[in-house]
Design a protein around this nucleic acid. Structure first.
Length: 609
DNA sequence: GGCGATACCG
């Protein structure tokens, strides 16, 4: 890189001319001193380089009495000094002289480091650079980068490292913005920045941006690898776009990149977590597909399926898989056991859960915090608070520290069993145990107060949590909305929905369903249907609970034909009626002599559960 | 740089 310094001025800009960067300098205070400074510079530059390389900073400082530190940086850059020496000077002058050099020079330095392939130095530089509170905008950064050099290759490498630095420092939005700018400038990024960017966007649930980056990568011919595709598939699965996820697998084939076990595991998990008809059947189909493609299931595959069957209230299928896993020479791990113990607890089979808890050690597996949490929760579900507390007290002796979820589990149990005092005592003991209470911790307490009908105290607790810097979340609102509905104050509850929008919270299915239930209980079907419309306008499709709530509401009003229509509609939409649906139909329709069209289907539901 | 388990709301 060639840098021309316009004589007798301080830096205020730069320009590429004839492939060389010209830095314009602002005039010094007096033109006389300027002339002498520059003369002395040309004489002292070699001396200064030497002083810098030896880190004789006090002598460097003495020289800088007559010279502007930024002008010296310019000279070092234009004299093609060793990039290491320039970097050393740059860092020292920023730290000791509190100088903030112009962006162009910072990127000039990076370009000079690029010429010697000192990439780790560039990475480290950018890592610190993006942590700056007064970070420059991406628009000025890219402008500076582009005017420093027209070497596309070096610019691309620096831009790539910049994106990565943003992502590593959790500044995902800026990383995404830089990704877009890099495209505008024609800089070619690589999977080394794009994969972490995609991964961070998935974690932020910004799936629209994930799809954008993915499409752009294809358009810009940024070479992807199997991880690129796996991350995108995971993002799409998280928001239920399973068909799109399958399309990505087709893209992989087009790129000639083979799928691997993670690809299939991700997709299987996507199906397991999606509540549609025959989801486990579909998950199983993918398992067969992967084997047909010579990709063999590993422990994680089994863990995903075991958890899926447990959540599908089919623990016996989960247990069979547990046996199969071992038959295939694979070893269950702590996650496998945690899923099974949790599944057994949820199915009310506490005895079997405890049996399994004992067997774990025989398998050579150590329990972790989650193991404790799930069994504690199992005890709590059976109102065995004492046993849950014993487990809690037992943890430390086994070298395990309770986490926020451990506390939440026990606090919630206290709240639900009329032991508010114990709940508050436990909550206030959290900090001294080094665990920060979360919004969810307060949610447990708020729920407890609401059960006692003390909505006033609940609202007061919200102020307390916000004082501690914890924001009420959508669950907090769900609890309050539910409590108001219970008291026959659905109108007031509906107002909270608007409050949620105002504070930037997005109501969930539970929020809408709770409110609909409130209106249904008051016999206000019109208001309930209105809530459903609001919900679907927000892009949330009715789920099984929505239908259950509405069907029950219509039945109670004697509108059995309308209820029957809703039953048909839910099936058409691919939703699985559950045990609650069956109970509603039996109690509210069949006992009154009305046989719904989907009776046979419901019969299957009733015998399987 | 990618996949799996737990609590608070219907």
């Amino acid at each position: 890189m060639d840098i021309f310094i316009h004589r007798s001025s301080k830096v205020f800009g730069g320009k590429i001319f004839d492939g060389r960067l010209i830095i314009f300098l602002r005039p010094f205070c007096s033109s006389d001193s300027t002339a002498s400074t520059l003369t002395s510079h040309s004489l002292t530059i070699p001396i200064l380089k030497d002083l810098i390389s030896k880190q004789h900073w006090s002598e460097v400082k003495a020289h800088l009495k007559e010279t502007d530190p930024t002008a010296l940086l310019c000279h070092l850059l234009s004299s093609k000094a060793d990039p290491e020496i320039i970097l050393r000077y740059y860092n020292w002058s920023q730290k000791e002289l509190k100088i903030s050099h112009p962006l162009q020079l910072s990127f000039g330095l990076l370009h000079s480091l690029a010429t010697t392939k000192s990439y780790s130095k560039i990475r480290a530089f950018l890592h610190k650079f993006v942590q700056d509170e007064n970070l420059h905008s991406n628009s000025s950064i890219f402008h500076a980068l582009s005017i420093c050099s027209n070497k596309l290759c070096a610019n691309s490498i620096i831009a790539d490292m910049l994106v990565l630095a943003y992502v590593r420092n959790l500044r995902t939005r800026l990383g995404f913005e830089a990704f877009k700018r890099a495209g505008d400038y024609g800089f070619r990024l690589s999977m080394f920045s794009c994969n972490p960017l995609l991964s961070a966007l998935v974690k932020d649930n910004a799936i629209g941006d994930v799809e954008y980056v993915y499409k752009e990568m294809m358009r810009r011919r940024i070479e992807p690898n199997v991880i690129t595709f796996n991350v995108v598939i995971n993002g799409l699965c998280k928001v239920g776009k399973l068909n799109k996820a399958r399309d990505v697998i087709e893209d992989m084939k087009a790129w000639g990149i083979p799928t691997n076990v993670v690809t299939y595991n991700t997709l299987i998990d996507g199906y397991c977590k999606m509540g549609r008809v025959g989801k486990m059947y579909k998950a199983d189909a993918i398992l067969k597909e992967m084997v047909a493609n010579k990709v063999f299931p590993n422990e994680v595959t089994y863990n995903i399926l075991i958890d899926g069957f447990c959540k599908d209230e089919n623990v016996s299928a989960a247990k069979k898989l547990f046996e199969e896993l071992q038959r295939r020479g694979l070893k269950p791990n702590v996650v496998t056991c945690n899923s099974l113990i949790n599944g057994l607890c949820c199915a009310g089979k506490l005895d079997e859960a405890i049996e399994f808890w004992d067997e774990m050690l025989g398998l050579g597996l150590n329990r972790n915090v989650v193991t404790y949490n799930v069994l504690m929760n199992g005890f709590c579900q059976k109102k065995m608070i004492k046993e849950a507390r014993d487990l809690f007290d037992d943890m430390r002796g086994h070298g395990l520290a309770p986490n926020a979820i451990t506390f939440n589990t026990l606090i919630d149990a206290y709240c639900k069993n009329g032991m508010m005092e114990e709940a508050f005592v436990l909550q206030s003991s959290m900090l001294e145990k080094g665990v920060f209470p979360l919004a969810s911790t307060y949610n447990c307490l708020i729920g407890g107060l609401c059960i006692n009908g003390d909505i006033k105290a609940a609202r007061k607790l919200i102020f307390e949590m916000e004082d501690k810097g914890l924001r009420a979340d959508h669950i907090t609102y769900n609890i309050l909305i539910g409590a108001l509905c219970q008291e026959g104050e659905s109108r007031k509850a509906a107002k909270l929905l608007n409050v949620m929008f105002k504070v930037g919270l997005s109501p969930s299915h539970v929020t809408y369903n709770t409110l609909m239930d409130g209106f249904c209980m008051e016999g206000n079907l019109k208001a309930a249907l209105n809530v459903r419309m609001q919900m679907e306008n927000k892009g949330r499709r009715a789920n099984v609970v929505t239908y259950n709530v509405l069907i029950k509401g219509f039945c109670r009003k004697g509108k059995l034909k309308d209820a029957n229509g809703l039953l048909n509609e839910m099936l058409e939409r691919g939703l699985i009626p559950n045990r609650t649906t069956y109970e509603i139909v039996r109690e509210e329709m069949m006992e009154k002599g009305f046989i719904p069209d989907i009776e046979g289907h419901l019969y299957n539901v009733s015998i399987s559960s």
